[in-house]
Design a protein around this nucleic acid. Sequence first.
DNA 1: AAAATTTACAGGAGTCACGA
DNA 2: TCGTGACTCCTGTAAATTTT
Length: 764
Amino acid sequence: MPPHHLTSWFALVSAWVVLLPVLARLLKASAHVPHHEAAARAQAAKYRGVYYNKRNRAFVAALHVLDGPGYIGCFQSAKEAAEAYDQAVRCRYPKPTADHELRCKRHLNFPSEKEAAYTESPEQARTRGLKQGGCSHRKEARSFELLKAASDTSPHSEKYELERLTGSSRADALFKRRGSTQTGLPIQLKAATSQWKQGRVFRFNRLLGYDRMLVVLVALDGGHLWAAAGEKLAVDHLGITIGCGSDTNRRVENIGSYLAACFKNTQKFPHISVEEAEVQCSPNCRVEAVAHRQLMKLFSRMEWSLTCPPQHLSAVDALLEVDIEGPMLRLQEKASNFHETLGRYHICLRKNGGSLGPLPYDKDDFDLLAACILHEGQLQGVFLIPISELVQRGLVASRSCTLYLHPPWSLPKKNGTKQKYAWQQEFFLDLRTWHGSKEVPAQVKVHMERLIAKATTAAKHACMWRLLRPPPYTCETFGVRWEDVKFTAKEEESEDEGADPPEVPAERATEDEPTAEATEASAAAPSSADSTGSPRSPGSVSDGEEGIDVQVDEPSCEEPDANPTVGSSGDDFPGRKGQHVGDDDTSVDPCVNLWDGIRKQMENIIIWSLMSVVDGIQHRKGSVELFGYDFMIGEAAQGQAPDVWLIEVNSSPACDYSTPVTCPLVKQMMEDTVKIMVDLKQTPGAPTGEWQLMQHAFSKQVPQRMGFACNSQLEVLGKKMKMPKAKKKKKRKASKKSAEGTTAGEGDGDEADGEDGEGDDGCD
DNA sequence: AAAATTTACAGGAGTCACGA
DNA sequence: TCGTGACTCCTGTAAATTTT
């Protein structure tokens, strides 16, 4: 036997010697599992939510959700358990629930043909994707807010402050001396919402790897804080049950003092700088974090403010405020290191599309792309490209693609490609000579101002409404969850089919189908009674005295018709402005404020519509009526306000929470109505919330009519005039004679006229 | 009830096929 | 052979689901 064969033989034998004990253990283990149990497990594995319980020798069906253990029951066969699981899924996520169809398709063991055939629309997929994708950012922000709020109440807050670090940094926050730019105590934040019943258990994951760092565990929905040194957390995941040892051993009541104590213990918690914290984050995220910080520094040198959006939006990484009164530019930040082998920089232009995978950006997703290019952690330059430019070049809004960036020192080698990317040079800022110093080179400064002005103009002219900030209140403001309060069409149908269908206004049937296309605006207007004469519905409010007639026909309407409160202010929400363009900004064309025109038209429509029915309204003391106006806004011609069209007016409009958007609006409206009905009556000048007094020029022209509608005391003074009988008879005889030659109808009309004339005479 | 695992997401970096 | 662009991979996170 040749020597090399001998070697192979020995290798084979030694491999078997090593493998045999392993095989023996495996065989022993498999022999230990009874055949029937293995078969049962295989049966259970066929179905979702079904497990084999060897102790009971039964199949367990379980649907575990956040608010309960989810045990369904034990069954003799796996199929029975699977059917029970399906039933539980259908109960847990009934039809009106969001994602019902998708859950049925994905989760049911035996979906119907219709359920199996369900396909998610792109909008639904994207909404779902954003809901999941954005949650981590929201959690991170929320946990920092909670920690900051807790530490700010401490007396130590005068001396120390918490600084939030960029999202991907390994440390989430630095606790440092107030105003200091030096190092601080690195804090890793971990957030969790309660699991199980009564919010008693909080589960934190991925706790390892934070040595020499203070780990703070935040209970998002309980407000509790726990803290421990990173190295003391010897487990990767930790469940904390309120009241148990896991809670009491780590709970920190006075976080301010605790942080200050940790801050002083530099041996245990070595201080680090912001830059050091960034270096500790993952390589992928580090690029982005480093770029963001340097970009922020660059913009601060220009006295511009770069902030994180208040709510995480998938396509918006930061908000750039160039001017306090100016619009806010929504930035999509990208960063790239130089690719050594390929000799280029590149970024991916795509966004999360839920189950549909990556999607291209939409033309309204952001205003400005800030693509940073780095080398060894230093910002070499940045491309500031308005989204309109990207749209024009087919890089967004049509497909998701990779954008290859070519700064002047890394131009493509081929002439054709060089030409293809030549357009990028216009949007490039060379920052190689800047080095983060206080003075930005003058040439760069001028170029940057020009680029930002260009993006600002494009953004302002693209769509005015995007620049409006959302109302300052959401469902959370009122401490409610949309899932708990939402009103569904099904519920309404069942209600409508109930006791008195005739009393439900006809408009109700159509009003709760919100259309995304139609811009809906609701306005309340005063009235002394329901013009339809229908009984009061929950939409009506009563104050026990006069109605809210102050809104239209107060004598103060005699103010000049140029009263600016009518639609010109644009600040219908606190802190929300129409985002007027700074007049002094000569480099940018002033943007047309479309909202003022829209609002003026809406108010005119409201006034005219009420004027047209004012005669038919009967006053009812102590009552007011709420009207809901539906408007549609047409397309605006260049530089002109768009036409506003009235769709319908609903008396006693539905005040249910038909959408997550209307839910907080209705709640706010209810609260503010009380301010008008109670507060304003008791204290003149009291705040009225979102309600604004409509002082319309037109109301001046018909003071008597409006006064009549609002229960003014109309009284006829004087005494009845007695008409001479003979004269009257003559007149009647004369009219009788003339009536013989005419039709009976005409005669009736004359008689009526005569009576009217009599009345008029009396009045005179 | 608790622990473990899977899923889904975003982001930059890397790979590979194609064509000039 | 090299430049280009589409596609995949890797990492980190929290939520959801599965298993014990």
